[in-house]
Design a protein around this nucleic acid. Sequence first.
DNA 1: CGTGAGCTTGCAGTCACTGCATTATTCACC
DNA 2: GGTGAATAATGCAGTGACTGCAAGCTCACG
Lengths: 227, 227
Amino acid sequence: MSESEAVSEPEQDHSARNKTADPPAGLRERKRAATRQTIERAAVQLALEHGYDTITVEMICHASMVSQRTFFNYFGTKEGVILGTAPPMPDEAATRAFIEGTGSIVGDLVGTIAAAIVDQVPDTELLRLRRQVLQNTPALAAKQMARIVEIEGNLLQVVLDRFRAHGRSEQATPDLLDEARMVVALGAGGMHFAMRAWFETGFNGTPRELVATAVDLINRVTGETPD
Amino acid sequence: MSESEAVSEPEQDHSARNKTADPPAGLRERKRAATRQTIERAAVQLALEHGYDTITVEMICHASMVSQRTFFNYFGTKEGVILGTAPPMPDEAATRAFIEGTGSIVGDLVGTIAAAIVDQVPDTELLRLRRQVLQNTPALAAKQMARIVEIEGNLLQVVLDRFRAHGRSEQATPDLLDEARMVVALGAGGMHFAMRAWFETGFNGTPRELVATAVDLINRVTGETPD
DNA sequence: CGTGAGCTTGCAGTCACTGCATTATTCACC
DNA sequence: GGTGAATAATGCAGTGACTGCAAGCTCACG
């Protein structure tokens, strides 16, 4: 009863853009988004300049002119402000494509997840700075990777759907659930590879290239077994 | 390496009763080991009874009759005392066996790592209690899994050795290093599966059975490609 | 023995994070 | 436009993990 926040949780917020707000949302909402962004930028900025470990929440608050309490209302933790929003699930279309796919199942899974993450971000500048911070702070990079595990449950369902779509049942294969779990686990491993390349060793190339490379490697290593 | 004493109370006088078979250590060293164990047991005990999140380091210190400072001298963090020692690298023989192996490379890798962990401690009572604590504390279980990453660097070397032993060179395959990285990443994923089964859903069976199951699944999913 | 190395401890302090009560804003409705 | 009900921002006081430092204590060894 301490890991999860009690009161307010960092809320999703896709409407926050760099400049003017596209959606004519209420003033309240707009202000909120602005504050959030101010804090985020100040934090990333400071972390880049002085190192994540040496800066304090108080510094961030001072730089962004909010109270410490407000900081924690927005981002539950000091990590939270650097890591940003959690990696998203693939959208409807991508999910369907995966389910009906016929390539190496692990490779397909990694490609699908990675594509979802890559497609997500509009704010490239902030993203780059974030990435730099993670490069200098291995502990944070590890946390970021661990986040993929959070959507593991959903992925499991999708993998099972693919199995069924391919005519496999739990009657024919009693441990089909375990097999799906293993696919997800291996997929997480593949993502681990990709994110390590992306965060730690500054991969010089587009994210798409990175994904292609990773999927290619997985297929080579796992032998491209359809499923 | 070898701790098998049953000193369940703080450093009381254990004058002539010490069946120290292997360690012909000095008094100092023995005392140290005893203290360590006392703290460990108290901590695990308390965590089991009240939950990891609700107990404090002070409670542990009180129960094991050491100062807080001493606690942190032994285990740098509150987590540390529950997680115990980090997972070890496979020994010489196991490593060689892996290098010369011809099975699915990811499966072989997971089998080798898992075997090393399983062989590590002759199923102590403490181990079982630890496992229970992790079952009740997902955040800790996650940390434990993340620990495998710590030996990633060494594993990478071993995988490369296997490649070379099989006649593969970086000249024939320019991105051989990346391929090895991917193998390690997928292997970590496989371990993830096994540890999840072991810690979170109390797998009822011997650790060896679990390993066999996991390797079997990996081979099925990845198509048993030799390498 | 006596002395130095290694352990343990108390203490003071930093920092992340939380609950609660209060004040300031914004919204919804009249 | 004014007003009361949300909602957000803040101050404050506290908890708990963790660290550096400066003793004091214990064991090892000549």
